[in-house]
């Protein structure tokens, strides 16, 4: 007979969940150079990331956070905060959810979506730093492109659907209602579906 005790999560994730690193204490963010917040409470996930930056070197020296969310959300923000310290702003900006998941020793498929807010919040914090310091030219807006004109579905919506479990075009349609009117968006949607499956799940 198998014994209990095996978690649905990796040991690294469990460790970060049990002993999260770099939690922002209290609510005062004045000492930080950039603040970013993503997600909302209704969906069950919200993350705030705050950073300190060494101006000369363009490097993140401290990263703290608060997270409202499940074990994966808590652990992924914790691990992210460790990953970014000492990185340049550009390098930190490009951290993907997949890297965070790898650092955590893997995440179950249905938990990936719980971890994608951390890097988004980090990018928001970096952009906030740029804005505060008159470097608006460096602010990188996340590009949003409408793929399905009929149903107003964007590439972001497609990415979210993939993170929520859509793997086939049909499932993508169920999630987003994309391609259900004129159908001309199908080819582009399928390319993006493949791309996001590859980015997030390596398939």
């Amino acid at each position: 007979m198998l014994q209990a005790g095996e978690w649905a999560y990796s040991e690294t994730l469990k460790e970060h969940f049990m002993n999260p690193k770099n939690i922002l204490q209290g609510e005062n963010t004045d000492d930080f150079d950039g603040v970013g917040m993503e997600g909302n409470l209704q969906c069950g996930d919200q993350m705030m990331v705050v950073i300190k930056v060494d101006r000369e070197k363009d490097v993140i020296t401290d990263c703290q956070w608060k997270t409202y969310g499940c074990a994966s959300a808590i652990a992924s923000t914790s691990v992210l905060s460790e990953m970014v310290k000492g990185r340049t702003l550009d390098a930190a900006f490009n951290i993907s959810p997949k890297e965070v998941a790898i650092e955590l020793g893997g995440l179950p498929d249905n938990k990936i979506h719980c971890s994608v807010l951390g890097d988004k919040a980090l990018r928001a914090a970096i952009n906030d730093y740029y804005t505060r310091n008159g470097m608006t030219d460096r602010v990188k807006k996340e590009q949003v492109k409408v793929i399905c004109q009929c149903m107003n579905v964007t590439d972001h919506d497609i990415e979210d659907a993939v993170l929520e479990g859509a793997r086939t075009y049909l499932e993508l349609q169920e999630h987003t209602k994309l391609g259900t009117v004129c159908g001309q968006c199908k080819d582009e949607a399928e390319v993006l579906l493949g791309k996001y499956k590859h980015i997030h799940f390596g398939v």
């Binding site: 609510e27 917040m37 993350m47 705030m48």
Partner: peptide, 16 residues
């Protein structure tokens, strides 16, 4: 709650 965005001493949601 100490690590939650939804609950800080200044009141729920104050962090946002």
């Amino acid at each position: 709650r100490n690590m939650s965005t939804a609950y800080v001493k200044g009141g729920v949601h104050a962090a946002s």
